[in-house]
Amino acid sequence: MADESALRTVDVARESGYSVQQVRDLERLGVIPAATRSGNGYRAYAPVHVRALRAYRGLAGAVGPVAARQLMADLWTRTVTEAAAAISAVHVGLARERDEVLRAQQALWAIESEATAHHGAVETEAARQGAAEGADTMTITELAAALGVRTSTLRFWEREGLVAPERVTSLRARRYDASAIGAARIVAALRGSGYGIPAVRDIIDSLHSLHSLQEGGGPERVRHILAERLDRIAARSVELLRAGADLAAVLDSLTPARAPAPA
């Protein structure tokens, strides 16, 4: 007797909002587990397949389709504890992105403050806070870790004239002062917003031009970019939250966490 609770491919497509072909493709990619086969050879899905596809849609909005496919395929091989940790890491990653953009905004305020000081202007409280944050120098390893990039990326930015570290000790080790750290934060935010190296170089150059500052071109442009990036991060966070209930259903279908062996 056929399982009346089983869903056909067309049922899953209708409930998930994907096409029949997309459902098959996502099954092939491991986003959803393989369907069982009925006696006549047709695919038979369960409600968890629909929840998994909805979860994938939210994850794709939060981290992009490639990362979402990798994460969903990985979840099916994990215990509940491991899968929950992987999903929590996505939330942490978005929070880190948001924090870095906020630090880039503070760095921008500090750069503007330094420039306006040359014109006899008084620093704003926000600018003073931005200048104070990270006032200590950083090594290339420390700065790379703070920005979530590789040390080779910082060296590349240096070669491209985007960030200028100080060099100290007989080994010519790189150290970054507050100004360089601020510039690196802005570069990281601009690159994260999809700007190419030439465009980033133009923007960074404009930030250090007092004439540009008087016209409001460089800083105003960066302010707009950073605000847009914060908006996009917020939208991605909402997509992740929207996927929450469906992700929970996926986790409920996984193997329970393994109990530790008795001592």
Rank of each mutant, 00 (worst) to 15 (best):
A6I: 01
T9G: 10
V20I: 07
R28N: 01
L29H: 06
L29F: 06
L29C: 02
G30T: 06
P33R: 00
A35H: 00
T36D: 01
N40W: 01
Y45P: 00
P47F: 00
V48P: 00
H49K: 00
A52K: 01
A60P: 12
P65M: 03
P65V: 12
A67I: 13
Q70T: 13
Q70S: 14
L71G: 10
L75F: 14
L75V: 10
T79K: 05
T81D: 15
E82Q: 15
I87L: 15
V90M: 01
V90R: 07
H91A: 14
A95P: 05
R98E: 11
D99Q: 13
E100N: 13
R103W: 03
I111Y: 01
S113D: 06
T116R: 08
A117S: 11
A117G: 11
H119I: 04
T124N: 03
E125R: 12
Q129A: 12
G130P: 07
A131R: 03
A132T: 00
A135I: 07
T139A: 13
L143A: 09
A145M: 11
A145D: 13
R150T: 13
R150C: 04
T151E: 12
S152M: 06
W157I: 08
R167P: 02
T169H: 04
D177S: 12
S179N: 08
I181G: 08
G182Y: 00
G182R: 00
A184V: 15
I186Y: 15
I186C: 04
S193H: 13
I197E: 10
A199S: 12
V200L: 12
I204P: 05
S206W: 12
H208G: 15
H211I: 08
H211N: 15
E215Q: 14
R223I: 02
H224L: 12
I225S: 13
I225C: 13
L226H: 02
L226Y: 06
A227S: 10
A234S: 09
V238A: 14
G244A: 07
A248F: 01
A249S: 08
A257I: 01
A257D: 14
A261Q: 09
